[in-house]
Design a protein around this nucleic acid. Structure first.
Lengths: 201, 201
DNA sequence: TCTTCGGCTGAACGTCTGTTCATGTGAACC
DNA sequence: GGTTCACATGAACAGACGTTCAGCCGAAGA
């Protein structure tokens, strides 16, 4: 039954691994589960990947690149910082919902310590992107300056918390519009002539 | 060497369990580690707790009560909603830093599925508290109304994301003041006569 | 001194894990 | 038909885990 090419098998394994890791986490998943999901033997996994770690790393790297590409594609073309923030938030939330568990797993899993370096650069890149958006907004006089990059961190944290909520507390999910509204306009009621920017509800 | 009373041993075990679970997570921790930390034998653990699950549940429940008590004590006495939000954020962040890993572990750990019910009620209670603060603020005309409880969810998520950052991305930590400022006043620059409320920087 | 008993020990057990390796299989070429 | 080779198998291994249990220890009462 060696119909399949090595290339096909590799893809099948990667897909199965993504499915299983997403459903069970890194430590919760085991090689037998992945093999079963791929309809393949345990031994075959080791023909394509040196170890569980390396398999997980491969899957993660693919997902990261996809995420980064999509965010860049949608955000970098826009010129209005307000719009950029809105789209960033929307895209992030969409991606998070699509890859729910895996993103969360890779954020958390203790056993997945080898990915630390990638995580750092991943977060750093995303933060740098948001940072540049906000900085430009400040220069244009649209955004207020809050601390040194503190606004970026709060925004990043809100989205990070959103991912957590997806997995463990769905009741806490909010809409992208509401999130954008609050981060842009704040909770305090504005009573001056200045209206809430882009009030969407 | 049976100097100690059962009560003392029970306390020693709970303390050790908190330490080990915090450091290694639920799945990462094992009974031998907890026994070693407590200076006790593995068997003794089972004289006081039926299983690893039950031990973790005990530790978690204690921490939850402490957390809830402290939040209530500091927030409920205040009358100004703005001040309540500020103190809530500050207290939450302080508690999170103190119990870093454990809070995060209990938020996440897949192996810790049995605590799901407690988690739900824990989150529900905290959300209800914030919700009531914001609702009162809206009634008093201090806060703008955003969706149905959406503001609460964004605030909760920002703090939840803060906890995540503590553990996996310390570079993303922000100050309580900055967080309060952004959630209250938003990112958009206010150019009317209305100043940023309680601007702290 | 002997018995009882609360408190404790840690080797042993069964199960599950990541990984290996001797072996099988079928297509493609000689 | 025979050989080669890429692809694949799954029983077996070594280690780690949660849990158990036969037994130890020292104080207190008889």
């Amino acid at each position: 039954m060696n119909r399949r090419s090595a290339e096909d098998t590799r893809r099948i394994i990667n897909d199965a691994a993504l499915t299983v890791f997403s459903k069970s986490g890194y430590e919760g998943a085991n090689m037998r589960m992945i093999a079963a999901e791929a309809g393949i033997s345990v031994g075959a996994l080791y023909l394509y990947h040196r170890s569980k770690e390396e398999l997980c790393a491969t899957v993660f790297n693919g997902l990261f690149k996809e995420f980064r590409r999509e965010i860049d594609e949608k955000v970098l073309g826009l010129s209005d910082p307000v719009e950029q923030i809105r789209v960033y938030i929307g895209t992030y939330m969409e991606m998070a919902k699509t890859h729910r568990e895996f993103i969360y797993t890779f954020n958390r899993e203790r056993g997945f310590t080898f990915g630390v370096e990638w995580k750092r650069s991943f977060f750093a890149e995303l933060r740098a992107l948001v940072d540049s958006i906000i900085k430009r907004g400040v220069e244009q006089g649209v955004f207020a300056e809050v601390g040194k990059g503190e606004a970026t961190k709060v925004l990043v944290s809100a989205l990070r918390g959103y991912v957590v909520s997806i997995v463990i507390d769905p009741e806490n999910l909010f809409s992208a519009d509401a999130c954008t509204d609050i981060l842009l306009n704040g909770l305090i009621k504005r009573c001056g002539p200045q209206e809430r920017a882009d009030s969407l509800q």
